[in-house]
Design a protein around this nucleic acid. Sequence first.
DNA 1: GGAATGTTCCCCACTTTTCCCCACTCGCTT
DNA 2: AAGCGAGTGGGGAAAAGTGGGGAACATTCC
Lengths: 176, 176
Amino acid sequence: MLWAMNPLTRRMRYPVRDSIRCFFGIMASFKGQAEYSVDSKGRIAIPARMRNALRPEANNSFTITRGFEQCILLFPMDEWERREAEIARLNTYRSEARSFVRTIMRWADETKMDGQGRIVVPKNLIEFAGLDSAVLIIGVLDRIEIWNPKTFAAQAEQEADYPAVAERIFEMGRDL
Amino acid sequence: MLWAMNPLTRRMRYPVRDSIRCFFGIMASFKGQAEYSVDSKGRIAIPARMRNALRPEANNSFTITRGFEQCILLFPMDEWERREAEIARLNTYRSEARSFVRTIMRWADETKMDGQGRIVVPKNLIEFAGLDSAVLIIGVLDRIEIWNPKTFAAQAEQEADYPAVAERIFEMGRDL
DNA sequence: GGAATGTTCCCCACTTTTCCCCACTCGCTT
DNA sequence: AAGCGAGTGGGGAAAAGTGGGGAACATTCC
C-alpha cells in the first residue's frame, strides 16, 4: 500500500487505496458513518477515517452546501471544482438554468478544517438541515453527508425497499 | 496553493484556487449568501468571502447593472469587459439585438469599493430592485446578485422543485 | 462672481464575529 | 504506565461589518 503525507497532521497517513479512478482522474472515496456532536460554536469534527481519505489537492478544504434531501453535503475542494466547472457551462440566458445555478451557489460556502480537523457549519445550513447537538456523518463516495439523526431515521424507511431500488437503478443489466 | 496580494487589505488573501477556468480563461467564482444592511448613505458592504474571490485584475471595481429578475447584478471589472466584448459582436442591424444592447448598457454603471469594501449603489438601481434597509447578497459564480429579501422570498418557491430541475438539467443521470 | 447647498469620497472609530491556538479527556496501543 | 491519536471545549487576537465626520468637488441661487 502507498502512503502520502496528510498536510494537516504532517504525517504519512493518507492511504492512496482510499480513492477511486473516475473520468477526471482520481477522486476520494468516503465510506462509513459516525455520530458526532456539534459544539456551541457550530463546529463539527470530521471523522479521522474520512480526513485520511482526503487527497492533498483538497488542501484540507471543503465546499459545504445543501443536499437535495434535508442534509448537508461536504465536497473536497478538488472534487467541487470539477462540479463547478460543469455548472459554469450552463447557459445563463435561460431562466431555468439561471435559477438553478443561483440556488446551487447560494447555499455553497467554502470551509477549511482547523488544526483539530473540524469545520464550521454556516448558520443557514444548520437551520436548513435542522441540526441540533448531535449529527450523523455518512461517507458517500465522493462526498460526506451530515444529517440530523432523527431526520435520517424518519426518511430511512425508504431503505426498506433498498433491494428493490437497486434492481431499478441497475435495470439496464449492468451489474456493479 | 498559490496566493496573490489583495490590494484592498494589502494582505496575501487572494486564493488563486478560488477561480475556475472557462472559455475565456479564468473567472471568479462567487458563492454563498449573506443578509447585510444598506446604510444611510446608500452604501452596501461586499462580503469578505466574495471580496477575496476577486481577481487583482478587477481592481476592486465592479460594473453594476440590473438583472433579468428584479435584482441588481455586480460583475467584476475584468469579467464585465469580456461580456461587453461579447455584446459588441451582436448584429445591431437586427432591431431585437439593438434593443437588447440598449437596455443592458442603459442600466450599467461603474463602481469601486471604498477602503471598507463597500460600494455605492446608484439610485435608479435601488429603485429598480426595490431595496430598503436590508439586502440579500448572493454569490452566483461569475456575478454577485443583490436582492430585497422579500422580493427574493416571493420568487423563491421555485426552489421547491430544485431537485426536479436538477434531474432535468443533468438528465444524463449524474447527480450533483 | 461668490456664497450657500448638496454630493462624493476618503478616513477614523466602534462592535461583533471569526479564526487560530492551547488545553483537557478518553481509549487504545506499545 | 506512558504515549499517542482522536474528539471536545474555550480564550484571545485579528478580521469583518457598521456608522459617521469632514475635506474636496460640483451645483444652484442670489
